[in-house]
Design a protein around this nucleic acid. Sequence first.
DNA 1: CAACAACCTGGAGTGCGCTCCAGGTCAAGC
DNA 2: GCTTGACCTGGAGCGCACTCCAGGTTGTTG
Lengths: 129, 129
Amino acid sequence: MPNHPRTIAAAAAELGVSVDTLRYYERDGLLLRAVPRGGNGHRTYTDVDLGWIELVTRLRSTGMPIRDIRRYAELVRAGSGNETERLAVLTAHRDEVVRQLEEVSAHLVAIETKIATYHARLRPREKSA
Amino acid sequence: MPNHPRTIAAAAAELGVSVDTLRYYERDGLLLRAVPRGGNGHRTYTDVDLGWIELVTRLRSTGMPIRDIRRYAELVRAGSGNETERLAVLTAHRDEVVRQLEEVSAHLVAIETKIATYHARLRPREKSA
DNA sequence: CAACAACCTGGAGTGCGCTCCAGGTCAAGC
DNA sequence: GCTTGACCTGGAGCGCACTCCAGGTTGTTG
């Protein structure tokens, strides 16, 4: 059963963000369109809206700045023809994420080494000589 | 040849941070001690100072908030006896970093899938039927 | 029909982690 | 002896990504 509309609160819960954040993303041009409204003027999020915002949250969670996401959204809004440019944005971000993962992994090793030294110090079990 | 002292500029270059950041960390209680000064009042960073700040930068680069690092520095400054507490801080952070790595990796997969769909769209090479 | 909940708007406020600035001292080089 | 450059201080300012607020409308509920 696709495309049942959701209130902003339901959408926020589903996406794991706040309703303020959803309104903020819309105001800031991160969405593909103004979220449609019901008769009472309330936003009604469709599956399509949710799917896009899910991508936005993934980009955010991997550290893409708001302004870059806005740029990407603008490209998508502009319609087909600029796929190469969109791909460049995504690819650049992918590379950056991979770089970050490597860097953080390296730091993680150092931190775990530190943890190991504390364990050794707290467990003075080996022969001291 | 250990323990040759460095100027703040040299220390910053070595650590990959700005001199402002070094002064800020000191002011904010992230260091184990006030960095010693030469006769002219300039800071002179020893190997020990550098080693500690390197750990600080690793913690920062893996997302530990300043205030948590300060807490950890306070524990170390308090001297031996609280190793269990220090270990708890580091372990909690380690777990958080691992969690983040997993989350980001999952998002990365989704982003790479998206990239793949663009590649497919840009290379309409397969039989259309 | 009163109260309440959920939403709306434009705009102000917040927390974080720096980053920058003015005004000053000191040592070295010309 | 004057300029230059590296450093010093206390404090202000900034960019980011939200988060909160006042004041208002609408729809439901007892």
